[in-house]
Amino acid sequence: MTQADATWLFLDAVPEFGGHEVMLLRWLQELDAQHGPVAARLLARADGRLFAQAPPGLRCAPLPAAGGLWRQLRALHARVRAERPECVVVASGALGAHVPQVLLLRLMGQRVLLYVPLLGTFASMGYRRGDWKDRFVRWFYGRVPRGWVAITAAQAEEFRRWARPSGRVFVLPNTVAPAIEQAPRLPVRALAPAEPLRVLVLGRLDAHQKGLDLLLAQLAQADPARLAGLRFSLVGDGPYRAPIEALLAARPALARHVECRPWMAAHEALAGSDVLLLASRFEGVPLVMLEAMALGVPVVCSDLPGTRPYVPARCRFAVGDIAGALDILHGLRPAALRQALADAGRTDFEAQASGRAFHHHVQQLTHAVRAHFAVGMRPGPALHAKKLPEN
């Protein structure tokens, strides 16, 4: 094992846990496994699920869970002085998160990479006062980090176009847990004439982002003949669960075609399904999409920058076009077609999102970031990097 040349500090200061934290842990584990020029260290809230789920061998340090933002910033300041990292990767679930932390790090002369899975405009995602938030990114936030990490080349290009960030935008594509990749592929079953196609909607039950309001509105008003041959399972937990259950209780005819079930592991949910449906208004690169591809389950989804490189055009529909999604689903009843889609999905997964591909992506990113630090990331005079004193 070779000694690392430098340390990269990875920061996530929120208590929640979501898809980007899953990917952050994979990135950290991959850096550790490669024994390359960079040693990784995680800095996360002591009461957060990210800190709790970090693997035992990963170098971790806690941020205080109590005492407010000022205490957290002091702890971050002390940790940076102790670690003297080559750069700090700040993992944010959304643009605009971790603003105080990023400002502190830059004032300390640190090179900051911001890892954000969603780099579309706030306005396009339907955020309140989205135009003003987009201006904030253009005028200020896009100029503070010294680099950005996106999860697809299309999202990186979109971000460059609308935000005009001052730092370089790198790309690190998503992958899945090794257990999913190594699991046997799920069989594609043939359907009897009266047997429904089992359609899975898996993930956080959020009405707006996941498009569940659009999906349920279309299903509720559809002619019963339009729903014949389809069975929808909405699996997950979240703020929209109670409205879904209330709607199904009030509409017995709809409940014959739609069920709502608690969250379960992806492999278990996909094993009981024929097709995965993603009706989202916006996404990064959905992990459940990659998990379905790895296991051999066809995917039908909204046409988004994060799904376009992975799902064929015949299985994508315009955002909000649930009627179009139903047309696609009805066309997937033949087992031979679903088998062909499953085979193609697995091939694309292995090329773009497998562990082997991710290993290569991390190597490329590490090299590109370090080379860019040496050439193109010299701090400006206002935030000039100085040698940090020892503790």
Rank of each mutant, 00 (worst) to 15 (best):
M23F: 12
L24W: 02
L24N: 07
L24R: 03
L24H: 04
R26E: 10
R26H: 14
R26G: 07
W27V: 11
L28S: 06
Q29E: 15
Q29F: 05
Q29G: 14
E30T: 13
E30P: 08
L31S: 10
D32K: 13
A33M: 11
G36W: 09
G36P: 14
G36H: 09
P37A: 04
V38W: 09
A39N: 12
A40R: 02
R41Y: 13
L42T: 05
L43Y: 01
A44Y: 04
A46E: 12
A46G: 08
D47E: 13
G48W: 05
G48E: 08
G48F: 03
A52G: 09
Q53C: 11
A54V: 08
P55A: 02
P55K: 03
P55T: 02
P55C: 04
P55N: 02
P56T: 06
P56R: 04
P56H: 04
G57N: 05
L58S: 09
L58N: 08
R59A: 15
R59C: 15
R59N: 12
R59L: 15
C60E: 03
C60P: 03
A61M: 13
A61K: 09
A65N: 09
A65H: 05
A66I: 01
G68M: 15
L69H: 08
W70H: 10
R71D: 13
R71Q: 15
Q72P: 00
L73Q: 01
L73F: 04
A75M: 10
H77W: 15
H77Q: 12
A78T: 10
R79D: 09
R79P: 00
V80Y: 01
R81N: 08
R81K: 09
A82G: 09
A82M: 06
E83N: 00
E83I: 04
R84V: 04
R84A: 15
R84K: 15
P85A: 04
P85R: 05
C87N: 07
V88R: 00
V88F: 01
V89L: 15
V89M: 14
V89K: 00
V89I: 14
V89Q: 08
A91S: 14
G93E: 06
G93S: 14
A94L: 02
A94W: 00
L95S: 01
H98M: 00
V99Q: 02
P100G: 06
P100H: 06
Q101I: 01
Q101A: 05
V102L: 06
L104F: 00
L105I: 04
L105T: 03
L107W: 13
L107D: 01
G109W: 11
Q110K: 04
Q110I: 06
Q110N: 02
Q110V: 01
R111M: 12
R111G: 09
L113N: 00
P117I: 02
L118P: 09
L118W: 05
G120I: 03
T121P: 15
T121G: 12
A123Q: 13
A123K: 08
A123D: 12
S124K: 05
S124G: 13
S124V: 07
M125D: 11
M125I: 07
G126A: 06
G126Q: 08
R128F: 05
R128M: 06
R129Y: 14
D131M: 12
D131H: 11
D131N: 08
W132I: 12
K133W: 10
K133F: 07
